[in-house]
Simulated scan of single mutants.
Amino acid sequence: MEGKKILADNRKARFNYMVLDSLECGIALQGTEVKSMRAGKFSFTDAYARIRNGELWLVGFHITPYEFGNIFNHEPVRERRLLAHKDEIKRLQRKVDEKGLTLVPLKFYLKGGIVKLELGVCQGKKLHDKRQSIKERDDKRAADREFKQRL
């Protein structure tokens, strides 16, 4: 990951959803939002993306106001436009409409000083799928522990 600084990773989304595809998008941010994001003062637990009028929008994304900002500080929760090519947006629109998939933010990172977002095309997991994920994770931990003890 040369030139990338990961700001946040949505591990809960990978537990609750099966990620079928992903896409790198830019985010249209205001001035103080970038500073707050660099400081790690944002939350995207309930965030998702929506396609409206051929544009990609991020909904439910909270960026804490910049503490050294002035009266021109940004609104904490607002819909933010995601920057992607029209062909990619159309492809995502078809997937979401046909199969009932969800667009979930998976990772936020800086790439060349610009805030980027990895958007996942996800399908919700059923309860037994989540149990299977927990079992696989526990088995991997046990195997790693056993391997470490043998060394």
Rank of each mutant, 00 (worst) to 15 (best):
G100Y: 04
V77L: 15
L29A: 11
N73Y: 01
F61D: 05
D97Y: 11
A49N: 04
R50I: 12
L58Q: 04
L56F: 05
Q93L: 05
V34D: 02
T32Y: 09
Y66G: 07
A47R: 03
T102Q: 04
I27N: 02
R91D: 07
V96L: 12
F61K: 04
T102C: 07
F42C: 12
L83G: 06
G40S: 07
L56V: 07
V77C: 14
R78L: 13
T102S: 13
H74L: 08
S36W: 03
R38P: 00
M37W: 02
W57L: 15
T64P: 00
G40F: 09
A47F: 03
G54H: 06
H62Q: 15
L29C: 09
N53I: 04
L101C: 04
A84Q: 01
T45A: 14
D87G: 01
K90F: 09
E67K: 12
R81Q: 15
N53F: 08
F44R: 03
H85E: 15
S36A: 13
G100C: 06
E55V: 02
I27L: 13
A49W: 03
L103A: 11
K99R: 13
I89D: 05
R80S: 02
H85W: 00
S36I: 08
R91P: 00
N53M: 05
Y48F: 15
G69K: 02
E33W: 04
V34Q: 09
T64R: 14
P76I: 07
R94H: 12
I71V: 12
K99W: 15
E33N: 07
G31S: 10
H85N: 13
G100R: 00
A84E: 03
H62C: 11
M37P: 07
L103K: 14
Q30D: 14
R50H: 10
S36L: 06
P65G: 09
R38I: 10
R80Q: 01
N73D: 10
G100M: 02
N70D: 15
T102I: 14
K41V: 02
L83Q: 10
N70G: 13
V104A: 04
M37F: 05
H74C: 08
E67F: 09
Y48V: 00
F42M: 09
S43T: 00
L82C: 04
D97C: 01
G40Y: 06
E55I: 01
E75K: 13
P105T: 12
F42V: 09
I89R: 01
E75H: 11
L82E: 10
L58A: 01
K86V: 06
T45C: 09
G69P: 06
L106A: 06
K90M: 05
G54T: 02
P65K: 10
F42N: 05
L92P: 05
I51K: 03
H85M: 04
L92H: 06
H62S: 12
L101Q: 10
L83D: 10
F42R: 12
L106F: 10
L58D: 03
T64D: 11
K41Y: 10
E98I: 11
L58P: 01
T32L: 01
Q93R: 08
L101V: 01
T45Q: 12
E33R: 03
V34W: 08
L106G: 06
E67D: 12
S43C: 00
H85V: 08
V59Y: 05
V96F: 01
P76W: 03
A49D: 01
